[in-house]
Amino acid sequence: MSVIFDRRSIRRYKDLPVSEKDLEGMLRAGMYAPSAGNERPWQFVVIRDREKLMKITEFHPFTQMLKEAPVAIVPCADMRDLKYDGDFWVQDMAACVENILLEGTARELGTCWCGVYPKENYVRELSALLGLPDYMVPFSVIAVGHPNESREVRERFNRSRVHFEKWSL
């Protein structure tokens, strides 16, 4: 539970590389996320290229931390052969991203989840930058690095948001 409670969005990073072992552990955690019908629609693009990271900050205003982050993970949804109608893949991808963030915290790395889908311009620009085929949808950008800031951990549990059996005020 401490990993869940300690996870924070980190936007400042030290000038240190992220090891292959740590990256693989985070990707492995992502691939262990639950998915509808065990579909596992995820594919990943790992970006270390400084020029590509900077280009993302030009079209996605909420990714400015990539100017310092040594690496980004871009989870993408493979839209080929989805088993179910609807957007269950969105839930699958969100679970995948959360697993990556939690594993990063467990490895004492900082992460920041930057949404891409469903913003059409972010999807289009990122797809072009990464050369994604039409059937791949970039879901998010996850900045990863050694934190150069600490974020306060505050209590978030709020009993007034819990309702039993029916809605209550």
Rank of each mutant, 00 (worst) to 15 (best):
D6Y: 07
Q43Y: 11
Y135T: 04
N38L: 10
A77C: 13
I47W: 02
I4H: 05
L130K: 00
F139V: 08
I56H: 05
L102Y: 07
K83F: 00
R124V: 08
W89K: 04
P70W: 06
A36H: 05
L130H: 03
D78F: 08
R11S: 06
S19N: 12
R28T: 15
I100Y: 03
I73A: 03
P75E: 09
L53E: 05
Q91V: 12
E120I: 11
V74W: 06
E24C: 12
S19D: 13
L23N: 09
N38V: 01
E108C: 05
R28E: 15
D81C: 10
I56E: 05
S127K: 10
N38T: 01
L129W: 02
V141I: 11
P61T: 13
E58F: 13
D49H: 13
I56Q: 00
F88V: 12
C76H: 06
V3R: 09
E68V: 10
P75K: 10
Y117K: 02
M79V: 08
L27W: 05
K52R: 15
Y122G: 01
E103G: 04
V74Q: 00
K14G: 06
T105R: 07
K52E: 07
R11C: 05
I47D: 03
P61K: 15
D85V: 08
A72Q: 02
Q91E: 11
D22N: 11
G37N: 08
S140T: 14
I142A: 04
C114P: 04
W42Q: 11
Y122S: 10
Y84I: 06
G131R: 11
S35G: 09
A33G: 09
M65H: 05
C96I: 09
D85R: 15
N38M: 09
G86V: 10
S35E: 11
P118C: 12
D6G: 02
R48T: 10
E98I: 11
A29N: 07
S9I: 03
C114R: 01
G25Y: 02
E68F: 02
F44S: 06
L82Q: 11
V123M: 06
C114T: 05
G104A: 10
